[in-house]
Amino acid sequence: MSQSFMNLSLEEQEIKKEEWRKELAEVEYEIQTMRQVLTSKLRKSSELKRKLGITAWGEFSNDISQGLRNVKETSTFQTIEEKVEEVSKAISSAPLYQKTETALKTTAEKTTTFLGGITGGLSAKIGAVKNSDTFRSMEERVGSVYTNVKV
């Protein structure tokens, strides 16, 4: 308790405490009244939102979108974005990056050429096998076996 309160007589202290109790009761009553009004307003708001087709998910999505827009507009975010762009440009213009990028492009081109050669060669060989006399003979035998088993 404050020093001035302690300087009061016991009777004056009791009077002061009673004033504070009354004030506390009034403040608590006002708080209770505000809670009741707020609860009523929340119910009315929910009912109107339901009638308008506004969902909790829609509100959440809008809040998140607005929050992201607010963050993007801050000077801190814009400064970070500028720094990231500077670092990205520095990395991509570095000689080591250029050499690595060139090596990867060359490797990709060679791999594509190699795989294209393999698949082209395989297609040609499969075509040749299918047109061979041996394959046709085997194909006819399998066909006749199938027909005999089926009957």
Rank of each mutant, 00 (worst) to 15 (best):
E85Q: 13
F114P: 02
Q78A: 00
L122M: 12
S88W: 01
E109S: 14
K110W: 08
E140R: 07
I118T: 03
R141S: 06
L122W: 04
T119K: 11
E101L: 05
T102N: 12
A128V: 00
E82H: 09
L104A: 13
A128M: 06
T102F: 08
Q66E: 15
L115T: 10
E86N: 10
E109N: 13
N131A: 12
V129K: 01
L96E: 15
S123G: 14
T106K: 12
Y97S: 05
A124L: 09
G116L: 03
T100Q: 11
F77Y: 14
T76W: 13
E139F: 03
T119V: 14
S137D: 13
K99D: 05
K89D: 06
G121T: 07
E85W: 08
R69L: 12
K89A: 12
T79H: 04
T113R: 11
T102W: 08
E73K: 05
V145N: 09
S123Y: 07
G116R: 04
A124W: 04
E140H: 13
S75V: 11
E140G: 09
V71H: 00
S88Y: 04
G143R: 15
K83Y: 07
K125S: 12
K110G: 02
G127V: 00
E86F: 10
A124I: 11
L122H: 12
A94H: 15
K99Y: 06
E86A: 08
I80N: 00
A124E: 12
E101P: 02
T76A: 09
K72N: 03
V71I: 10
T106W: 03
I80P: 00
K125R: 15
Q98G: 02
S123T: 10
R141I: 11
E81N: 14
G67E: 02
E101R: 11
E81F: 13
S137I: 05
I118Y: 03
M138A: 13
G143W: 13
V129G: 00
N131Y: 02
T112D: 15
A108V: 05
R69A: 13
G116Y: 01
K83R: 12
E139K: 06
K89I: 03
A124D: 13
K83C: 05
Q78E: 02
N70G: 07
Y146R: 15
P95F: 01
A90G: 09
V145D: 08
E86W: 02
K89T: 07
K89L: 10
A124H: 09
G116W: 04
E139M: 06
Y146L: 15
L96G: 07
Y97A: 07
E109V: 11
Q78H: 00
G120C: 00
T106A: 09
I118D: 04
T100A: 14
S144F: 02
A108L: 06
K130G: 00
I118G: 04
I91D: 09
V87M: 08
T106E: 12
T74P: 02
K83H: 05
Y146G: 12
S123A: 07
G116D: 06
K105Q: 12
N70M: 06
Y97V: 03
S75L: 11
Y146H: 14
V87P: 01
L115F: 12
E86Q: 14
K130V: 02
T113L: 11
V145W: 13
K110P: 06
V84T: 03
L104P: 05
S137M: 07
